[in-house]
Every structure is written in C-alpha cells, then in structure tokens.
Amino acid sequence: MFALLFSISVKDKCDSVNRLLVPTDLRVSGCYGSFVPGPNPAHVAMATLNEQTTLAFELTHSRALDEKKGVIIQTVLSYTSQQGVRRTRVQSLTLRCSRHLLDTFRNCQAQTLLTFYCKKMYCAVLERPLQDLREELQTEVTAALACYRKHCSSSSVSPGQLVLPQYLRALPVYLNSLRKSEVLLPGLRSSIHQRLQLRCQLVSMDVRNTAGHFYPFLLPLPVGGDTPSLPDLGEAVRCRAASLDPGGLYLVHGPLVLLLWVGQNIPSPSLVQLFNIACLSALPSGEIKLPVLDNTLSVNVRGLIDSLNSETPYTRKLQVVKQGDSCEEALQRLLVEDKSPNGGASYADFLYHLHVNSIRLLGH
C-alpha cells in the first residue's frame, strides 16, 4: 500500500471530474481531500478547484509488482474554464518498483507522508472516534520504525539505541504535531466551528503549507545595537520554549498564523525602533499593524513580513504576544516540540514511546 499526492496546476476552474487510472495489479482504495466522497474513490467530482488543490490517493496491490516495468498511473482531469469551455487534461506518471525495503525508505519524504496522513485522518474525523485515529497514527509509525530496524539497520545496533530512517527523521515530530492538533485533540478553548474551519483548510492544503502548519518557522529577529540583515527560513530555530530568549524578538511563521513574540527583557531601543514605544507595558497584545518608522529594524521587519505574506495563499494578520501575558497560550500551541496546552505529548516523550513500542514489537 502506498500514497500518491496530486497537485492540480490550474486556476479557478469549476465542475471538475478527476479520474485516476491504474493497472490491474493496483486498486485505488481511498482518496482524501476537500470534496464529498462518492462510491468510487478513483472518480472524484469537485465543484471548484485551483492551483492549491491537492488530493491524496491511497493505492493497494494484492500481488508483487513488476520491478522492470514499474507502475504507470494516469490521471484524467475534466473541467470547465472561466470562459465556459470544457477541457480535459491527461497526465501520466511512471513509478519505480522495488522488492528491497531500503529502497522504499530512501524514496520516502516525511512532508509528503505528513500531508497524506493529515488528509486521511482529517477526512475520517466525521466518522471515527478521535482516540482511534490518534492511536492509528502511532501504530503505523511504530510499525514503520520496527520494520526499518529489523530489515534495514545494522545488526550491531543495541536494543537501547534509537534508529530512524535517514530521510524520515522528521516524521515523528510531524506526526506527533498532527496527533495533538486541535482537530484530533480538541482543547478547552477551541470551538467546533474553529475545528471545522481548520479541518476544511488543511484537507485541501498542499505539501509545503501542510508541513509549515504542523512545524512553523520560528525566526529570531535581531535586537539592540546595529541591526544586521534579517534571517531567512533556513535560519529558523527549533519550535520549543527553550529556543526563546527573554531578551529577544521572534517571528512565528505558518500558512495560517503570523505571530510576533516579545521577550520581557527586550532592550528599550528595539521597542522604540519597532513599535515607537519606550516601555513594554505600553505594548498591547493581540492583532497589530506595525507603525511605519524610518529605521533599519522597522524597515527590515516589515519587509520580511510582506515577503512571507506574498508566499502564503492565505490572509493573515500579525499578532503580538508578550512573554508572560495571558494570551501566550497562542504561542504555546505552536511550540510543537513541547507538551501542548491541550494535553498533547512532547516530541521527546512521543519519540521515547515510539522507540519502546518498536522494540517491544520486535520482541527484543
């Protein structure tokens, strides 16, 4: 069984029908996305679609596939353009097959698997208990780690040593963030309407934005003295409270959130340059629009925010959170490596349980 993601590169089309054609050795066992499912998962009808529309297909094979020929998959998309013209696009994809598990793990991508599981689990929340879905996620990643440890790792590995596939090292932190998300583990302050809106946004989200939602970028901003150039996304720090310096400024960037955390020991000159205030107590928490000031820090931060907003297909408002403030829970939910306010496990605890359960599964 394996997953397949399709991103449809068309702009604002309507009355679309997407058909997935597979060889006789394969069967389309599921399709997940922002649509009303029909009796045939290989035949998907959607009222509208655009270039952000992403569908996840689940394919199952009952016998060995031909390694030499591989697998050819074809998608046929019919839609009506804005001019009222009915069009059909056909795309073919050839996938390699291998009997070696190591090849399978080498060709897996953590962000793609996260997107597939997100769509699959979020589509199932209307029909299955949330506890069952969280346990299924943990069971599947445990089985994958046990399989890799048994068939792909060195025989000299001790039982107490954690073994993760090289290209899936980020998968546990992604899936733990998915398990304790507001949709699968509701908090006391999340309403059913907020959870439904979040579910609808994520089941249609592409791979890059899905990964950014479940592990946001935590960017440290320069404070005090001469202001150097601002960091890019590659300089983001880990999403945990230990990464936050009380004397610093941090911008949290995700596809649905843009949050500016202000430490309680931030230098006064930085407050003046960025907010035009001299005292932290005068800075209000919540939604804010940064004042237009003629200094390097203000120009760079506003330029960074404009750049990040231009890359995100969602409208976001900047939210300021001060350290120790009552609304700091909004930031705590985004620090996905820590224990979440709704009771979700920290990344370290989740990884420990995965390791113990995989060892137990192998009978060590």
Rank of each mutant, 00 (worst) to 15 (best):
L114I: 05
Q52I: 02
L354R: 07
Q161S: 12
C123V: 06
G225N: 07
L304G: 02
A143E: 15
C108P: 06
F2H: 11
S155F: 09
L93P: 01
M121S: 15
G33D: 05
C147T: 13
P165S: 14
Q197M: 09
N342M: 06
D349M: 01
S155D: 14
Y352V: 01
H353K: 07
P220M: 04
C97D: 04
Y174L: 08
K150S: 11
V10S: 12
V356P: 02
K322G: 02
T139H: 15
L95Y: 05
K317P: 02
R134W: 05
C152G: 00
V22P: 01
N295K: 02
N357R: 15
A345M: 09
T54H: 07
R169P: 00
C123Y: 00
L175V: 01
L95A: 06
V157A: 14
V173Y: 09
R240G: 02
G224F: 05
L4C: 10
S307D: 14
D226P: 04
E287K: 15
L260Q: 05
L171V: 08
H100L: 10
Q273S: 14
S177D: 00
S310P: 04
G343H: 04
L283E: 07
T24G: 04
G160T: 10
D66I: 04
P216M: 11
L260M: 08
L251W: 04
D25F: 08
S310F: 10
P172T: 10
D12C: 03
L271S: 03
G247M: 04
K150R: 11
V76R: 13
K68I: 11
T104L: 12
L95S: 05
K180N: 05
L137T: 00
M205E: 13
P341L: 06
R208W: 10
P129T: 07
T24M: 10
S191H: 07
L335A: 06
S190D: 11
L334D: 02
L280K: 01
P246K: 09
A242K: 10
Q111P: 02
F35A: 07
G212W: 07
L77H: 15
P284K: 08
P159H: 09
A330K: 13
Y250L: 02
V336Q: 10
Q138V: 03
S340M: 01
K120I: 00
